[in-house]
Simulated assay, not measured.
Amino acid sequence: MEIIRSKTFTAQRAWGAKDIANMNGITTRLHWTDQPYKWHVNDGEEVFVVLDGEVDMFYKENGVEQSALLQTGDIFYASIGTEHVAHPRGEARILVIESEGSV
């Protein structure tokens, strides 16, 4: 049993994470960042939940770049093959649920 106060979580580097759970190869991790990630495609599906802050999520649909502003409480679902990159606006805390070992 553990209680995690996401609003106070920080990491020593951008996209540093706290591993919360691994359930049959699906990981749940809390990330802290103040820097953009990199364009990538996950090995499987990804659920990306903004717990604190704002994140500009860029993604490609049919090869066309799109974007959406994700605010606290918003969820981005990346299906298999969705190329995407997250750019936080200042500090952000993000819960990511994905296949173990995914980018």
Score class of each variant (00 low, 15 high):
Gln12Lys: 14
Arg13Ser: 05
Arg13Gly: 07
Ala14Glu: 05
Trp15Cys: 06
Gly16Ile: 01
Gly16Glu: 11
Ala17Gln: 14
Lys18Tyr: 15
Lys18Arg: 15
Lys18Asp: 15
Asp19His: 09
Asp19Ala: 06
Ile20Arg: 04
Ile20His: 03
Ile20Gln: 04
Asn22Cys: 11
Met23Ala: 01
Asn24Met: 12
Asn24Ser: 09
Gly25Cys: 02
Gly25Phe: 11
Ile26Asn: 09
Ile26Leu: 06
Ile26Pro: 10
Ile26Lys: 02
Thr27Ile: 06
Thr27Arg: 05
Thr27His: 08
Thr27Gln: 09
Thr28Ile: 11
Arg29Gln: 08
Arg29Ile: 12
Leu30Thr: 06
Leu30His: 03
His31Phe: 04
Thr33Arg: 00
Thr33Trp: 04
Asp34Arg: 03
Asp34Cys: 11
Gln35Gly: 09
Gln35Glu: 09
Pro36Gly: 08
Pro36Tyr: 06
Pro36Phe: 04
Tyr37Leu: 12
Tyr37Lys: 08
Tyr37Asp: 13
Lys38Glu: 02
Lys38Tyr: 12
Trp39Ser: 01
His40Asn: 05
Val41Gln: 02
Asn42Lys: 11
Gly44Trp: 01
Glu45Met: 05
Glu45Ser: 04
Glu46Val: 10
Val47Ala: 12
Val47Phe: 04
Phe48Cys: 05
Phe48Gln: 02
Phe48Ile: 07
Val50Met: 03
Val50Glu: 02
Val50Ser: 00
Leu51Gln: 06
Leu51Gly: 10
Leu51Asn: 03
Leu51Pro: 07
Asp52Val: 07
Asp52Ile: 12
Asp52Lys: 13
Asp52Cys: 12
Gly53Glu: 05
Gly53Thr: 01
Glu54Ser: 12
Glu54Val: 12
Glu54Phe: 08
Glu54Ile: 00
Glu54Gln: 13
Val55Thr: 03
Val55Glu: 10
Asp56Glu: 15
Met57Val: 03
Met57Glu: 07
Tyr59Arg: 01
Lys60Asn: 01
Asn62Arg: 15
Asn62Cys: 14
Asn62Thr: 11
Gly63Asp: 09
Gly63Ala: 02
Glu65Arg: 09
Glu65Ile: 07
Glu65Met: 09
Glu65Asn: 02
Gln66Ile: 05
Ser67His: 15
Ser67Cys: 14
Ala68His: 14
Ala68Arg: 15
Ala68Ile: 12
Ala68Cys: 15
Ala68Asp: 14
Leu69Pro: 14
Leu69Tyr: 11
Leu70Asn: 03
Leu70Glu: 09
Leu70Trp: 00
Gln71Gly: 14
Gln71Leu: 12
Thr72Asp: 08
Thr72Glu: 08
Thr72Tyr: 07
Thr72Gln: 00
Gly73Met: 04
Gly73Leu: 04
Asp74Met: 04
Asp74Trp: 10
Ile75Lys: 08
Phe76Asp: 07
Phe76Trp: 08
Phe76Met: 02
Tyr77Cys: 01
Tyr77His: 00
Tyr77Glu: 01
Tyr77Leu: 09
Ala78Cys: 00
Ala78Pro: 10
Ser79Cys: 10
